[in-house]
């Protein structure tokens, strides 16, 4: 087996005594596509916050390719090669999709380079290709504020890819999308998984079934169980806390 790309060890995050993550242990291999599910308040988003440096763990360590992530500011972690898509799409509304992608694609992220360096033609081509992939060619030069919700979701995924990280953290990529869009997103993620390691957080069980190989279930801030979709689905504890109740609704 290849090296662990992400290794979370005994991480606890507490907000004023409330433990959003409780002694969480988690790791995944290079090139893996992992789906994380769990009921509301299980700590899924906090989990991503810890990896990306938005929240500092109260205890424990998070390592990316063996490098300790605590005490590093967000932008450094991003430069290490971790990209994140937010739960609700966060794109720069007053910039066009092309400019959004250019910002993320840029390799030189310090102030001086931004002032004086021009975009290379290779980068320009990458962006053109990405615009095609996410289906926004025709709207490439329209302010992102005018895009629909689904288009924004896709744009953000595109920005994530443009950053060319080694690890993609994708928080609820299909929330608010139509069935067709959901399926397309699934395909996109699957194709990305061929060359990236991906963590997907999702609520939509149909979608999870479509893409999941390995599933991790979070509950009350710790890992409840791990395994393939069918293993997880048949685990009585999971059924109790999550799937059983949820399945009827779906």
């Amino acid at each position: 087996m290849s090296a662990k790309i992400l290794d979370i060890e005994n991480v606890t995050v507490s907000f004023d005594g409330f433990k959003a993550l409780n002694n969480l242990n988690f790791n995944m291999d290079e090139g893996e596509l992992r789906v994380i599910i769990g009921p509301n308040g299980a700590g899924k988003t906090t989990f991503l916050d810890v990896i990306t440096g938005k929240v500092q763990p109260t205890e424990g360590k998070a390592r990316f390719k063996g490098k300790d992530l605590s005490q590093r500011p967000e932008h450094e972690i991003a430069r290490l090669g971790i990209g994140r898509k937010f739960q609700t799409p966060r794109v720069y509304l007053n910039l066009t999709p092309r400019e959004n992608l250019e910002l993320s694609c840029n390799r030189h992220k310090n102030v001086i380079a931004t002032l004086f360096k021009q975009l290379s033609s290779a980068e320009r081509r990458t962006i053109g290709g990405l615009l095609e992939t996410i289906g926004l060619e025709t709207k490439a030069d329209v302010p992102a504020a005018l895009l629909s919700h689904g288009e924004k979701q896709w744009l953000e995924i595109g920005m994530l890819v443009a950053q060319s990280p080694d690890l993609l953290l994708v928080d609820e990529p299909v929330a608010g999308l139509t069935d067709e869009e959901t399926e397309k997103t699934g395909k996109l993620l699957m194709s990305l998984a061929e060359s990236h390691s991906i963590v997907v957080i999702e609520h939509d069980m149909e979608f999870v079934r479509q893409i999941a190989r390995q599933v991790t279930v979070l509950h009350q801030g710790s890992v409840l169980c791990e395994g393939t979709m069918s293993e997880v689905q048949n685990d009585p504890r999971v059924i109790e806390v999550y799937l059983g109740a949820q399945e009827e609704e779906v």
């Binding site: 500011p73 932008h75 937010f86 910002l103």
Partner: peptide, 9 residues
Amino acid sequence: NRMRFSGYD
């Protein structure tokens, strides 16, 4: 804040 996650300070 979004910029930070794209690697900008």
